[in-house]
């Protein structure tokens, strides 16, 4: 089976690990080989959280620079920070809603504007789908559902080896019962994002 490498980056607290877990569980459900790794040093103290999901027969659960097939970022600055993982065929998905790091939030350093983020990403990657995932999560009924929106947008790329149906089923089975409905709604909203 062809190896597909998916990188997800976010700010601690945005629920990136759950998004990765849903992809992993969906692969298990679909009988597709999967390996994942995560770096979540001090996530709760506002640091960066990275997850790598590798579908198919590769043994490595790490994604080296230039090797991601999909890069999904929950926050534009973090998406840009991870762009070294991309190559000319990489599909990039990012939320446009900024979560400025403290120094930027208090005006000590500049937060890059989105047009420059976009430009720098497209310098390296193949394509970019950008939208306000926070807004869509709110529309779905839970601001915390950014992860499900992004999952939807990943499914929309048709580059994931797991099907939409497997992802939906996993959301039903593996996310918290009282959030399943909003999670599914958020997933559908993400899915409707054109890539």
């Amino acid at each position: 089976m062809k190896v597909t490498r998916v990188m997800i980056v976010a700010v601690g607290g945005q629920g990136n690990l759950l998004a990765a877990k849903v992809l992993g569980e969906a692969a298990l459900l679909a009988g597709i080989e999967v390996r994942m790794s995560e770096i979540h040093g001090m996530a709760q103290r506002g640091g960066v959280v990275e997850s790598a999901i590798v579908f198919g027969g590769a043994r490595s659960s790490l994604i080296a620079d230039g090797e991601a097939d999909i890069l999904a970022g929950f926050e534009p600055l973090e998406t840009l920070r991870a762009v070294a993982k991309c190559n000319k065929n990489t599909v990039v998905i990012t939320s446009t809603a900024p979560l400025p790091p403290f120094a930027a939030a208090v005006g000590k350093v500049a937060y890059p504007d989105f047009s420059s983020v976009q430009k720098q990403i497209l310098n390296v990657a193949g394509s970019l789908t950008a939208f306000d995932a926070a807004e869509l999560a709110r529309e779905a009924g839970n601001v915390m559902a950014v992860n499900m929106v992004i999952l939807g947008a990943m499914a929309a790329t048709r580059r994931l080896p797991v099907s939409e149906e497997h992802i939906r089923e996993t959301i039903r089975l593996k996310t918290r019962q009282n959030f399943v409905e909003t999670n599914l709604k958020a997933f559908e909203l993400g899915l409707s994002q054109k890539s």
Binding site: V11, G12, G41, M42, Q44, R45, G46, G47, V48, L77, E78, L80, R81, A82, V83, A84, P100, P101, F102, A103, A104, V109, A110, Y111, P112, Q120, I121, N123, V124
Partner: peptide
């Protein structure tokens, strides 16, 4: 690519 000049995001005390 994509590293130079980006504001860092160090962990901070809550």
């Amino acid at each position: 690519p994509g590293q130079a000049g980006l504001p860092p995001r160090p962990p901070t005390l809550c």
